[in-house]
Nucleic acid binder design. Structure first.
Length: 794
DNA sequence: CTATTCTATATATCA
DNA sequence: TATAGAATAG
C-alpha cells in the first residue's frame, strides 16, 4: 500500500480564479517530485499498463480489452499525476459515464494516494461536470444559475405542449418521436440553427426544426435544460466566449476519459475544445464493447482517435486477467467476425478451464427451468450465488426466469430497472418540493395538481393554462387569480384554493423547518402518502419505502435548494447489497461487471441479434449486437453457459425460433453441446404446457445452428474446420440467408400443401424458401416457420 | 370528474 | 401477455 502523500491541495483552491496558474512547474513542486517515494503504486502493473500510466504528455489512447485492468490504469494514472507533482487533484479532469463509475474511481484513487483524492473536484460524469460549468456561467447562455434539469418525462410533457401549441395533431406526430429526433440532434452537437437542411423537415411536414427552436425557447423561459443541453450549452458557451474556454483549457492540465467508445459527437466536441490547448488527453476504451450506438455513441470516435489527435500514442491492453482460456477464446473468435474494429487479441495465462456450454430448450419456460436447476446444482456444490449472473438481451426475458427463481426459492436481485429518481412516486414527491421551493415551476405543478385526485382534472388545468398564457404568468399565479373569480365550479375552486393555501404554508415553513421534516409534512398533508397507503397493489409498500428513503437521503443536504439541485444527477438507489443472491440483468447493465458463472439465455435469431437492431441499423446493428454477445461472454470468469429455446412467446404470441447466428460464430474447440435432460417435461407438472401438444418433441434439435453445433462436436477430434459465413458481404439480407441455407436439403414441402404445427395448428403453405416455410395458419395467421416444425397433413 | 373499458404497442440506458 | 393512454360510460 502506498503511504498517503502530503500534497499542497490542503490549500483551498481559489474558487473564482480559473486562470490561476498552477504551481506544479514551480521549484517546490519539482523538488517534491524528486523526493517522491519509488512510486510503489506502479508495482504490479504489467509493461503495457505501466506505459499507459507513464505516458502523461500528449494524446493517448488506451485500448483496453475486457478484463485487462482498465480501471486500474486510469486510477493509477491519476495517482501518478498527483504523486509526481505534475498536477494537483483539481487540475485533472476525469470524465466517466455513470456516477457509479465516478464514485468507484474516486475511491480507488483514494486507496492509492490517500484522502488527497477528495480534492478532485473535476472527477465526474459528463453531465455533472457540464452542470457545474453551466451554473458558473448560466447568464451567458440565457439561464439563471438555479436552472432546473428536466428528466425524461418532463421533457416529454414539454414537447407535447410545444407540438400542440403549433397546432399539430399529437397523435399523428407523437412527442416521443420528436424527443428522439431532438435527442439525436443534441447527441450530434447540433443546436436548432445547425440542423442540416435535409433533416429539419423530418417531423410533421417540415416542422421539425421549428419545433426544436420552440422547445429550446420554452426551456429558456422555464429556466430549464434537458440532459443534452448540459453538454450542448457548454459548447455554445465556449464557442461564443473564447476567453472562458481558455480559462478551462488552462484549468485542466490533464484530462482522462473512461469508456471512450461510448462518447457521442457532442461529448467528442466538448473534449476536443478542452484538449486543444494542452493536448494532454487520455482516452480509455474498447471498441469491442461499444454497445450504445442506439443512443448516439459513435464508435468512430475511438476508431478515429489518432486521426483526430495527431501524434497520439496508442497502447493496447490485451492481457486478460479475468477469464479462463476457453471463455476468452470463444469471445475473441466471435468478435473477430466484426469488420469495423481496431483489432485486439486477448490473451490469458490462465488455464483453459471449462468449455462454453450451449444448451437447447424446447421453449422459454423450459429454458428458465434448466437454468434454475443448474443454479441450484451449483449452489449445492457451494458455488456462491453472488457469483452467478443471468444476462438477458431484453428485460421482457426476465419475467419467466424470475418466476422460476421464485418458485424454487432461489434468492435473486434484478440489477438495473428504473432508476430511483425515475420512479413515479419519487418524481411526484420531488414535484411537490419543487413547487414549494419555486412556485413558478409549472411542470412540477402540473404534475401534482391532481395527484392524489382532488377533482382538478384536465378541464381545470386547461383553464389555468389559458389564463397563464394570456397573462404570461406561471400556473400557480394564474391559479391564485382564478380562485378569486367564479370561473370555476365551486368544487374544483375549493380544491384549488386549498392546494394553494397549503403550498403557501409549506413555503413559509420551509424557512424554519429542516428539509426532510418539511418533506415528510408535505407528503402527509397533501394526502400523497395516504394515496399509496390506500393502494393495495403489490408495489405500493415498496413505493412508500422509497419515499421514506427519499426523506432520509435529504438529511445529507444543507437545504432544500441544494438537495433539489443535486437530486436528479446524483441520486441512485443504494445498491450496496452484497448478500447471497443471483444477479439478473440485461447485457447492457452487465458491462463492467464480472462473475464466476454467467448464464446467457435467449440466443435466438430475432431476439439476439435483435431484429429491431438489424432492421434499423443493418450491418452496424448486427455488429453492435455481436459486441453485446462479446460483452456477455467476457463477464464470465470460469463458466459461460449459453441457452436457446425453440419456441418463445413474443408479445404474447408463440413463435418458433432458430438458434442465434452467434452460436455459429463460436469456435468449436471451445464449446460443448449439452443435451438437455431427456426426461424433461414428461408428465404435467413443471413441464411446458406444450409438451403434451408436441408430437415430435425432438424437433428442437433439427435447427441449423443446432445441427452445426453438433457437427462441430463430431469434428472436434479430427480438427476439421467448419464452414463459416465469412465470405459474405453486405447487410442483413445475407445474414438471413445464412440461416435458411445452412440446412443442406431443400424442403420437401410444396406450396399449397396442408401442414400441422404443434402450436399454430393447421395451415396452408404459402411459400417455400430453403428450409423456411411461410404458412398461413387457420387460427394463428401468417408465420414463417422452419419445416422441421410442421408435419405434412393429409 | 372519475371509473371503466378499450386499444395500441412492445430494445437496451445514462445522465 | 402486460401496460399505458385514450375513449367512453356513469
Amino acid at each position: 500500500m502506498v503511504a498517503p502523500m502530503n500534497q499542497p491541495e490542503s490549500r483551498p483552491e481559489p474558487q473564482d480564479d480559473l486562470t490561476h496558474e498552477p504551481a506544479s512547474g514551480s521549484l517546490s513542486a519539482r523538488a517534491r517530485a524528486a523526493v517522491a517515494p519509488q512510486s510503489p503504486y506502479l508495482a504490479g502493473l504489467n509493461p503495457e499498463q505501466r506505459a499507459a500510466v507513464e505516458a502523461t504528455e500528449g494524446p493517448v489512447l488506451v485500448l483496453a480489452g475486457a478484463g485487462t485492468g482498465k480501471t486500474r490504469v486510469l486510477t493509477t494514472r491519476i495517482a501518478h499525476l498527483i504523486a509526481t507533482g505534475k498536477a494537483r487533484p483539481f487540475d485533472i479532469l476525469a470524465v466517466t459515464f455513470t456516477n457509479k463509475a465516478a464514485r468507484e474511481m474516486r475511491e480507488r484513487v483514494a486507496a492509492l494516494i490517500g484522502p488527497v483524492a477528495e480534492g478532485m473536484q473535476w472527477l465526474g460524469t459528463f453531465h455533472s461536470i457540464g452542470t457545474k460549468i453551466l451554473r458558473r456561467h448560466a447568464e451567458l447562455v440565457g439561464l439563471r444559475s438555479d436552472f432546473t434539469i428536466l428528466g425524461t418525462d418532463d421533457q416529454l410533457r414539454l414537447m407535447k405542449q410545444v407540438i400542440e401549441a403549433e397546432g399539430i395533431d399529437e397523435k399523428r406526430w407523437p412527442a416521443r418521436q420528436l424527443a428522439s429526433l431532438i435527442d439525436g440532434w443534441k447527441n450530434r452537437g447540433l443546436g436548432p440553427a445547425q440542423i442540416p437542411a435535409g433533416e429539419a423537415g423530418a417531423f410533421a411536414q417540415g416542422k421539425g426544426g421549428k419545433l426544436y427552436t420552440a422547445y429550446q425557447d420554452r426551456l429558456k423561459v422555464l429556466n430549464a435544460v434537458d440532459f443534452g443541453d448540459l453538454l450542448l450549452e457548454c459548447l455554445r458557451l465556449w464557442r461564443e466566449h473564447p476567453d472562458i474556454l481558455q480559462q478551462y483549457q488552462n484549468r485542466f492540465r490533464y484530462m482522462l476519459v473512461d469508456e471512450y467508445q461510448d462518447t457521442n459527437v457532442a461529448q467528442y466536441l466538448w473534449l476536443r475544445l478542452l484538449a486543444q490547448a494542452r493536448k494532454n488527453l487520455c482516452c480509455v476504451g474498447d471498441d469491442d464493447q461499444s454497445i450504445y450506438g442506439w443512443r448516439g455513441a459513435e464508435v468512430d470516435n475511438i476508431l478515429r482517435f489518432d486521426h483526430d489527435f495527431p501524434g497520439a500514442t496508442v497502447i493496447r491492453l490485451e492481457r486478460n486477467y479475468r477469464s479462463t482460456g476457453h471463455i476468452l477464446a470463444a469471445a475473441s473468435f466471435l468478435i473477430a467476425k466484426n469488420q469495423g474494429r481496431l483489432g485486439k487479441t486477448l490473451r490469458t495465462e490462465d488455464e483453459p478451464g471449462e468449455k462454453v456450454t450451449i444448451t437447447g430448450a424446447w421453449d422459454s419456460e423450459d429454458e428458465a427451468r434448466l437454468i434454475c436447476e443448474e443454479i441450484e446444482a451449483l449452489h449445492a456444490k457451494r458455488h456462491p450465488l453472488s457469483e452467478i449472473a443471468i444476462l438477458v438481451r431484453i428485460s421482457a426475458q426476465m419475467r419467466e426466469i424470475e418466476e422460476r427463481l421464485v418458485t424454487l426459492g432461489v434468492p435473486y436481485r434484478v440489477i438495473g430497472g428504473p432508476r430511483f429518481y425515475e420512479r413515479a412516486e419519487i418524481r411526484d414527491a420531488l414535484a411537490y418540493l419543487r413547487v414549494v421551493n419555486q412556485p413558478a415551476d409549472d411542470l412540477a405543478f402540473e404534475r401534482i395538481v391532481n395527484v392524489p385526485k382532488r377533482g382538478l382534472g384536465d378541464a381545470t388545468v386547461q383553464v389555468l393554462h389559458n389564463h397563464a398564457r394570456a397573462a404570461r404568468v406561471p400556473l400557480t399565479e394564474a391559479a391564485r387569480f382564478i380562485v378569486e373569480t367564479d370561473e370555476l365550479k365551486p368544487k374544483p375552486r375549493g380544491a384549488l384554493r386549498d392546494l394553494l393555501i397549503s403550498f403557501g404554508r409549506w413555503a413559509k415553513l420551509s424557512e424554519t423547518m429542516t428539509q426532510s421534516d418539511l418533506a415528510q409534512m408535505v407528503l402527509e398533508e397533501s394526502g400523497y402518502t395516504d394515496m399509496w397507503q390506500k393502494d393495495k397493489s403489490a408495489d405500493a409498500a415498496g413505493r412508500l419505502e422509497n419515499l421514506k428513503e427519499l426523506v432520509r437521503s435529504m438529511e445529507e443536504f444543507p437545504d432544500l435548494q441544494s438537495f433539489l439541485e443535486h437530486v436528479s444527477l446524483v441520486m441512485e438507489a443504494n445498491e450496496t447489497d452484497t448478500s447471497e443472491r443471483v444477479s439478473l440483468m440485461t447485457l447492457h447493465a452487465a458491462k463492467g461487471l464480472e462473475f464466476n458463472t454467467v448464464f446467457l439465455p435467449g440466443w435466438e435469431e430475432g431476439l439476439f441479434p435483435n431484429q429491431r437492431a438489424l432492421d434499423e441499423s443493418g450491418r452496424a446493428g448486427l455488429e453492435e449486437e455481436r459486441r453485446l454477445a462479446h460483452v456477455g461472454l467476457t463477464r464470465a470468469r470460469r463458466m459461460a453457459k449459453i441457452y436457446f429455446a425453440s419456441n418463445r412467446r413474443i408479445h404474447g404470441l408463440w413463435n418458433s425460433t432458430v438458434p442465434s447466428r452467434f452460436i455459429d460464430d463460436l469456435p468449436e474447440a471451445s464449446v460443448e453441446i449439452v443435451e438437455a435432460p431427456a426426461n424433461f417435461s414428461q408428465g404435467g407438472f413443471g413441464g411446458s404446457r406444450f409438451d403434451r401438444m408436441a408430437p415430435f418433441s425432438g424437433s428442437s434439435y433439427q435447427t441449423p445452428g443446432w445441427q452445426r453445433a453438433q457437427a462441430h462436436r463430431a469434428q472436434t477430434e479430427s480438427g476439421s474446420t467448419f464452414a463459416r459465413g465469412g465470405e459474405r458481404r453486405g447487410p442483413m439480407l445475407i445474414e438471413g440467408e445464412l440461416v435458411a441455407k445452412s440446412t443442406g436439403a431443400a424442403s420437401t414441402f410444396a406450396v399449397g400443401g396442408r401442414v400441422l404445427h404443434s402450436k399454430f395448428g393447421p395451415g396452408t403453405v404459402e411459400a417455400v424458401d430453403g428450409n423456411k416455410l411461410t404458412v398461413e395458419f387457420d387460427k394463428a395467421g401468417r408465420k414463417m416457420v422452419l419445416d422441421s416444425f410442421v408435419e405434412r397433413l393429409g
